[in-house]
């Protein structure tokens, strides 16, 4: 079996004195579509920030593609769509094309310019998320769902093997959420991109993911969606630390 894409061992993290993550051990296998769920304040975003090196763990080790994170440098293999993409500077007068081309900046490297080949790649990535008609529109003029697609396109343009998405569907309407998950499936199955998706929307996640991880300071559950949905309310309440009413989604 090939090496897991992410390995986290004994990770602890605290903001000042408030412990957010305790003894986290988990792996993201290659090719999986992993849903990271859990209550607000449970440390989901913190965990993601540790993986993309925006934060450093207090102790424990992280490996990316089998390499220690301190030595890892192929960041273009990892596409990241942060929660903040929803609240970026809307006044920034960049076209969709320009925004997506920024996904190539680090990959192209210093002292080099965008070539014709890169430009085609950018257009292809825009096409992939169905936004080609808007390629030369300013990003600020698009709807929330369209902007989200652009940010995914920016993450895709550098041909990542792992795509990390933090609450990508916040502020996106139902119809677009559906299309969005279709896109994710396509990326996962056809392009073999490993996905790690953070969400508080447990219902949709159990429908789509291949693996579910439930995080509330510690890892409470790690398994298949079927196993998660078969958990009793009492067990779920234990994970969340308060009573949970299971709401079934039947859209």
């Amino acid at each position: 079996m090939s090496k897991p894409i992410i390995t986290m061992s004994n990770i602890n993290y605290a903001y000042d004195n408030k412990k957010v993550l305790k003894d986290i051990n988990f792996e993201v296998p290659r090719g999986s579509f992993m849903g990271l769920i859990g209550p607000n304040g449970g440390g989901k975003t913190t965990l993601i920030k540790l993986i993309v090196r925006l934060l450093k763990p207090d102790n424990g080790s992280i490996q990316l593609f089998g390499e220690a994170i301190e030595k890892y440098h192929k960041w273009n293999k990892i596409g990241f769509v942060s929660q903040k993409s929803n609240s970026f500077n809307k006044g920034f007068p960049a076209t969709v094309f320009e925004v997506v081309s920024m996904g190539l900046t680090a990959k192209i490297g210093y002292f080099k310019f965008l070539t014709k080949k890169h430009k085609n790649k950018v257009l292809h990535a825009i096409d992939q998320v169905g936004m080609l008609d808007y390629a030369y529109q300013n990003i600020g003029n698009l709807s929330g769902g369209q902007q989200q697609r652009v940010f995914i396109s920016r993450a895709l343009v550098s041909d990542p093997e792992l795509l990390i998405l933090d609450e990508p569907t916040v502020g996106v309407d139902y119809e677009n959420v559906k299309r969005f998950y279709e896109l994710l499936h396509e990326l996962n199955e056809k392009r073999d991109i490993t996905l790690l998706l953070v969400t508080h929307d447990t219902g949709t996640m159990t429908e789509h993911a291949t693996d579910i991880v439930c995080l509330n300071q510690t890892l409470h559950f790690h398994g298949k969606p079927e196993e998660y949905t078969s958990l009793s309310e009492a067990e779920l309440s234990r994970f969340y630390g308060h009573p949970v009413n299971v709401i079934t989604h039947d859209h």
Binding site: L54, W75, I78, N89, T105, R154
Partner: peptide, 22 residues
């Protein structure tokens, strides 16, 4: 001219720029 793409990327979204390795 030399750092146009880095400057633009950083100005648009500093977090993304950092994560992508700039």
């Amino acid at each position: 001219g030399l750092f146009y793409k880095e400057l633009m990327t950083l100005s648009f979204d500093e977090e993304h720029a950092t994560v992508s390795g700039i």
